[in-house]
Amino acid sequence: MRHLLSTKDLSRDEAVHVLDVTEDMAATQLREVKKLPTLRGKTVVNLFFEDSTRTRISFEAAAKRLSADVISFAAKGSSVSKGESLQDTAQTLEAIGADVIVLRHPASGAPAVLAESGWIAASVLNAGDGTHEHPTQALLDAFTLRRRIHGDGSRGRGLDGVRVLVVGDILHSRVARSNLWLLTTLGAEVTLVGPPTLMPFGIGDWPATVSYDLDAAIAEVRPDAIMMLRVQRERMSDAFFPSAREYSTLWGLSATRFAALPETCVVMHPGPMNRGFEIASVAADSPRSTVLEQVTAGVSTRMAALYLTATGAGA
C-alpha cells in the first residue's frame, strides 16, 4: 500500500488485512516494552492545516512506537500563512527528509492531489480532508467494533450482517463517509440518521438506509452499534436546525434512548464529545461505550497504516 487516502477504494481483502495488522500492533502495545524498531531511520511529518489534537497526537504516538522520527507541523503561524502553496510546503518537507506525510487539510481531495501529483515521493496518509474522508478514524471504528463482536476470533473476519446506526451531521462529516464505505465493504448494514438539513445531496445513491427519526430507527433496525457524530459548534448557529435544544431532543442519545437500545448494542463516538448534547453521560460512561477503546485502537490503527505504507520494496 503506497498511500492511504480513503476507505472507499479499499477492497474487502485490503480492509481486513489492515484490521489484522492492527490486531498485531495492538498486541505489541500490551507488552512492557511498547516500542518497535520497525520504522527506525524514517521520518514522519504531521502536516496539519486544521486544528486537531486527538488525531495529531495519536499519529505522533503511533509513529514514535514504531521508532520513526516525528516532525509535527501546524500550518498556523508557519510559512503557509505567508502564502506558501501546498506543493512548496510538501516539497520542502521532502527535502528535509520526510518519508511519510500525514496530511489534514480543510479542502476535500488535498491528500489525493499530494499523492498523485508527482511532486513528492513520500507516502501520504489522509488524516481528514474537508468533508471527504478520514480513513484511519473509520478503520479504528471498524477495528473496535470487530473486537467487541468477534473478540479474540476477530482475525480475518469482516462485519457481515452487523447493523450500525450513524447519527448526526452526515452532511459535513468525513467520519460518517469513511465509515459508511468501510462498513459496507466489510458487510455491515448502515442506517444514517439525522435532520434532513444535515443530509447531503445525492444521498439516495449511497449504500445506506436514511432515516430522520432516531426513535423509529432504533426500534426498526435493532442496531448492534450506534455511532454518534459530534455536532460541530459552528454548525449550531448556521440554521441547519432551529436550536441546539431541539437537535438534542430529536437526535441526541438521551438516557431514555440509551435504555431503548438492544442490550448488546455498543455506543461509539469519535470524540470529542459534547456531553448532554449529542450524547448523555449515562451512555458515554456505560460499559457498552467504546469511546476510550476507540482512542486506544487509534494508535494501533495508525501504527498499522504507517507500517503498511512506509515499508515494502520501493517505499
Binding site: 500500500m1 488485512h17 489484522d20 498486541a27 507500517y307 515494502g312 520494496a313
Partner: peptide, 12 residues
C-alpha cells in the same frame, strides 16, 4: 522491510 514486498505480521 524496504527490500521485500510488505508483509503482514503473524501473531506473537
Amino acid at each position: 522491510l524496504d527490500r521485500q514486498p510488505t508483509r503482514g505480521p503473524a501473531p506473537t
